[in-house]
């Protein structure tokens, strides 16, 4: 599904050049749950931005579902982000004065595949899947942090994307809300979604089945996570 070959990302700022990623290569197969970890400034967020088409690499090759990203236009990348990717951000990124419904429906507005009359059904289903059907017409700004992140997950799911990118999804949440969010991600993985998670919390990373460790912009390690706890119930003990 995803193949990176020698990806480099260099930032130029006032004549100063910073190498954020230095020749990163790996593959992610459909249905994997991958955690990317690393110390602050290691390049893990940069890597996630490149993987999720929010940014382009300076050099190297990135293949997504067989497409070489270097051959895609900005328009192609926007369409792929809309139809095949879902995003969950640390800071939720909801439009606080819009309702839950409007926030969750947002990706559908940019989709040419979903007719307007299907939207309501899809939004209701996505919101129900995160347990917030009662809050459908509430302003997003009035929700708690955990509820906001669940709305963000519903928004990420609305287009039924193949891959979900989560950037520190529990970073702004208390432990109970964090556990709820991770439980939802766990369920999504069980249903076959590919999940790529950036985190600095070992506890959160343990939900994944593979851990990529980045250090100084390079791939430090890439190993499967041996699950000491095998059931969902065990995770949330």
């Amino acid at each position: 599904m995803i193949k990176l070959v020698g990806i480099e990302k260099r930032y130029e700022d006032e004549g100063e050049s910073t190498l954020a990623l230095a020749g990163v290569s790996f593959e992610i197969k459909k249905g994997e749950f991958v955690a990317i970890m690393g110390p602050s400034g290691s390049g893990k967020s940069t890597l996630l931005h490149i993987l999720s088409f929010l940014d382009r690499p300076t050099s190297g090759e990135y293949f997504f579902n067989g497409h070489n990203v270097n051959d895609l236009t900005d328009l192609d990348m926007a369409h792929i982000r809309n139809s095949e990717m879902g995003f969950i951000f640390q800071s939720f990124n909801l439009l606080s004065r819009h309702t839950v419904f409007e926030n969750v429906a947002m990706p559908l507005m940019y989709s040419h595949d979903v007719p307007i009359e299907r939207r309501k059904h899809l939004v209701e289903r996505a919101v129900a899947s995160v347990g917030l059907e009662e809050k459908l017409y509430m302003e997003a700004g009035k929700l708690s942090g955990g509820q906001k992140q669940r709305v963000a997950i519903a928004r990420a799911l609305i287009g039924n994307p193949g891959v979900i990118f989560a950037d520190e999804p529990t970073g702004n949440l208390d432990s109970k809300s964090g556990a709820q969010v991770m439980s939802i991600l766990h369920d999504l993985h069980e249903k076959g979604h590919t999940i790529i998670l950036v985190t600095h919390e070992t506890y959160t990373a343990e939900f994944a089945n593979r851990l990529i460790h980045i250090k100084d912009g390079r791939l430090d390690s890439d190993r499967p996570i041996v699950k000491a706890r095998h059931s969902k119930a065990e995770f949330f003990k």
Partner: peptide, 16 residues
């Protein structure tokens, strides 16, 4: 600006 970034992240094109 952040709203623009979010909309682009979920698939909005420059034209949108």
């Amino acid at each position: 600006t952040r709203e623009i970034g979010l909309r682009k992240a979920v698939g909005a094109t420059n034209g949108d």
